[in-house]
């Protein structure tokens, strides 16, 4: 299986340099060769467990955290907001 690592990296928002491309390509091809070993299989791939339906909490506002505590981890903060590069002119 050929894999376009450059394209997959772009989708993953990862930047790989020219040295890394052949290394990751080779590794990904080996890993894919391993995981491709799946049997022919019929049926539906349902994702939910019927025995344990998940319950959502009641949609009710609660104050669990303080804004300044949450923002304390942000790399750049101004006026109670996180700062990112300009995206519109």
């Amino acid at each position: 299986m050929n894999i376009d690592v450059r394209h997959i990296a772009k989708l993953s928002r990862l930047h790989l340099n020219e040295k890394e491309i052949p290394k990751f390509t080779e590794e990904m091809e080996k890993i894919l060769a391993m995981v491709e070993q799946l049997p022919p299989i019929e049926g539906e791939g349902t994702l939910l467990d019927p025995d344990h339906p998940m319950e959502l909490r009641e949609d009710k506002a609660e104050t669990l955290y303080r804004r300044d505590e949450l923002l304390a981890n942000a790399p750049e903060v101004e006026a109670g907001c996180v700062v990112v590069p300009k995206v519109v002119d």
């Binding site: 894999i3 690592v5 997959i8 990296a9 989708l11 993953s12 928002r13 990862l14 930047h15 790989l16 990751f24 590794e27 990904m28 890993i31 894919l32 995981v35």
Partner: peptide
Amino acid sequence: RSEGFGDEVKRRILLGTF
């Protein structure tokens, strides 16, 4: 992401994205 993640994490992200 490229500077913050190590190679194994990158491999899994690439495989998962693929």
